[in-house]
């Protein structure tokens, strides 16, 4: 029998995925420019990681702008959706990269660099180290669920179109987007993984864990920001403040 179809929504989202090599090249160039500055201006390792996250956020905003439904929203609604989920999208992007990387003892960065977990344990503080380990646990759990690219793009879309967002002008469109993506994910998992009866629900439970982890990551970043360790005047800082103002 022919393989089950891939729902139209997922096919469209697959086409909208950014070119990873292009994103990587842009971020590497940006960080090298940073490192080319005079010694007194040079960022710390943590500062560079923040810069990397900031640049990854730019590509996330570009991806969102190209997204079905999202591009029909007014800029006010677009901002509310992104301010709500930016840290989840960063965490989910990191987790999916580790899924593809497939090594438990090291972390693959968006720049293509590989960092040993032992180096993170030695250099990062206990909070950051705990966050990285929690992310690794989530990677293992998603690996055991055999999450594929089709499900990844659909889950990412569901993170963007969260119904938690209040005061939207066009709530109806956001609800429609959510319902279409949920239906597509249910249809896809049931059709392609009939032996994993509960996969759809399991995947949504993982999204809740991504949300919880991203909240902790935001708290950590805000604490580092208050101690002056996060470079300012960038998208990362603006998003960090957005929920607090």
């Amino acid at each position: 029998s022919s393989p089950p179809d891939i729902p139209e929504v997922i096919l469209k989202l697959l086409q909208l995925e950014p070119d990873e090599a292009q994103v990587k090249g842009r971020i590497v160039a940006c960080l090298q420019q940073e490192q080319g500055k005079g010694r007194h201006e040079r960022l710390s390792t943590f500062g560079l990681m923040c810069k990397m996250a900031d640049q990854t956020l730019f590509s996330i905003v570009e991806w969102a702008r190209s997204c079905i439904f999202f591009k029909e929203l007014e800029v006010g609604d677009q901002m509310k959706l992104l301010q709500n989920c930016w840290s989840e999208l960063l965490v989910f992007d990191h987790i999916y990269r580790q899924l593809q990387h497939g090594k438990e003892q090291s972390v693959l960065l968006v720049t293509g660099q590989e960092v040993d977990m032992s180096a993170i344990a030695a250099q990062a503080g206990s909070i950051l180290n705990t966050l990285v380990l929690r992310a690794q646990e989530l990677v293992l759990h998603l690996h055991s669920l055999q999450v594929d690219r089709q499900e990844f793009v659909c889950l990412k879309f569901l993170i963007l179109f969260s119904l938690d967002v209040k005061y939207l002008e066009n709530h109806a469109l956001v609800r429609e987007a959510q319902e279409k993506a949920n239906a597509a994910l249910l249809e896809y998992t049931a059709g392609h993984y009939p032996h994993c009866a509960d996969k759809f629900r399991q995947l949504l439970l993982r999204l809740a864990e991504v949300r919880a982890l991203s909240m902790q990551a935001e708290e950590y970043l805000y604490h580092k920001h208050l101690s002056g360790e996060v470079p300012c005047n960038n998208l990362l800082i603006e998003m960090l403040h957005a929920k607090r103002t």
């Binding site: 800029v75 301010q83 998208l235």
Partner: peptide, 18 residues
């Protein structure tokens, strides 16, 4: 006090190929 121009808003309003 003039609000800081939002970088996110600028990005969202920029022309697609910017």
């Amino acid at each position: 006090e003039a609000e800081e121009p939002s970088l996110l808003k600028k990005l969202l309003l920029a022309p697609a190929n910017a």
